[in-house]
Amino acid sequence: MRHEKATKLLDLARRLASSSEGLTLDEMAQAMEVGRRTAERMRDAVWTAFPQMEAIEDPPTRRFRIPSGLDSLFQTPTAEELAALRTAADSNAAAGADARAAALYALEGKLLSALKGSARRRVAPDVEALVQAETIAVHAGPRPFEDQGVLAQIRSAVKGLTALSFRYEGGSQPGRTRTVTPLGILFGRSNYLVSLEGHSPRPRTFRLDRMSDVEALDRPASPPADFSLQAFADESFGIYHGEIEDVVLRIRADRAEDALRWRFHSNQVVTQGPGGVVTVAFRASGMLELAWHLFTWGDAIEIVSPESLKKIMVEELEKALAAHRRA
């Protein structure tokens, strides 16, 4: 028990040292999953161990941080943490996300080079043992396009709040040069730039593999203050955005266990009724991608609503049947 308390205190100290703004007591309590009174006692214990901690007035509350960081003695990564980093890098590499894989491999190298020789020799065998015992299951699908030069220009524009120019081989006018306000990147089975173009307030998505001659311009272009990339992503079942629908799905009782563990959408509401039948409800766009996914459930799922999703599902099934019957 004492060891667990010491570990939690050190975790809190790391959080206080890694935050430039500092943490309030409520934020400490939330991060450490404890009550406010416990968070106060933990803060005081950390302050005793690290007297360089400071309080910052931020009316109506106060923030706390350790401005000078922590000594490397308290920052040595564990074998499990290094193995998780390697696994994440290998996973990105296996999926074709070369740019993100390269960044994670570089981070791993920096962490290892910062370790003292004795610590590195002690942790290395355990890391290799864990990496060898944990492998990546590669799933079928498109390999994401991650050109380092394209990502660098997009990130430069995002950080500098400037416009982005590129030639786009897609859409209704292939080959046209576009100038947009970049809002962020959606990484997935295919990678997309999310941006505003022209006077339209509705964000648009552009596939990275169809972009060329990408350049961050010396022209101010700030995203709307209320825009959230996560909220935009949550509107759709997948990548494609359209009219937002109220979706209701009913899953047979014999697949209830699978359904209760499955996340169809971030805002889903899941209920289990008499006989074990599971109902899943959420609001989203992207009905075509949802229909493609529901096909993998076979006859275990019934589409209750919307009618547009039922229609799309029937049309996609008829296309597949027609193609295979001709063959």
Rank of each mutant, 00 (worst) to 15 (best):
T181L: 05
A124K: 09
A140C: 01
E289N: 08
V131G: 02
D58Y: 13
E318D: 11
Y192R: 13
A6N: 09
V34M: 14
A101E: 01
Q173W: 06
E315V: 06
G238E: 04
T162F: 09
E134R: 15
Q173I: 08
R62M: 12
R100M: 08
D226Q: 10
G96A: 02
P306Q: 04
S113A: 15
L260N: 12
H139S: 11
E257N: 08
L217V: 09
S91C: 07
T76D: 11
Q173D: 11
P274E: 13
F145W: 10
V314T: 13
V269K: 14
A225T: 11
L317M: 12
L294T: 11
E108K: 02
F264R: 05
A231T: 09
I185P: 06
G35W: 03
S236Y: 01
F64D: 00
A323G: 07
K116Y: 06
R100W: 04
L186P: 01
H293I: 00
V180W: 12
D26S: 15
T181P: 05
G242V: 03
I185S: 07
R100Y: 03
M211F: 03
K5G: 06
A45S: 09
R202K: 10
F187K: 01
W262A: 15
Y105R: 14
A124F: 11
E54R: 10
A300G: 02
S228P: 07
G109Y: 01
F295C: 05
S195I: 08
Q230R: 10
V194C: 09
R100H: 09
G242N: 02
A45H: 02
L151Y: 14
P224T: 10
R121Q: 11
R167I: 05
L161N: 12
D126Q: 12
A88Y: 00
A84F: 03
E128S: 08
G242R: 04
I303W: 05
R283F: 01
G298E: 15
L70H: 08
V158N: 04
H199R: 12
R143Q: 14
M32D: 01
I239D: 06
A327E: 07
R37I: 05
H199N: 10
S68E: 11
Y105S: 01
M32Q: 15
I244D: 07
I136E: 01
F282Q: 00
M211V: 02
A94W: 00
A31P: 02
F237K: 03
E169N: 11
E108W: 03
D126A: 12
A157H: 08
A152H: 06
E108V: 00
A216W: 04
A133T: 03
A233S: 12
R250Y: 04
K310V: 09
E169R: 09
W262C: 13
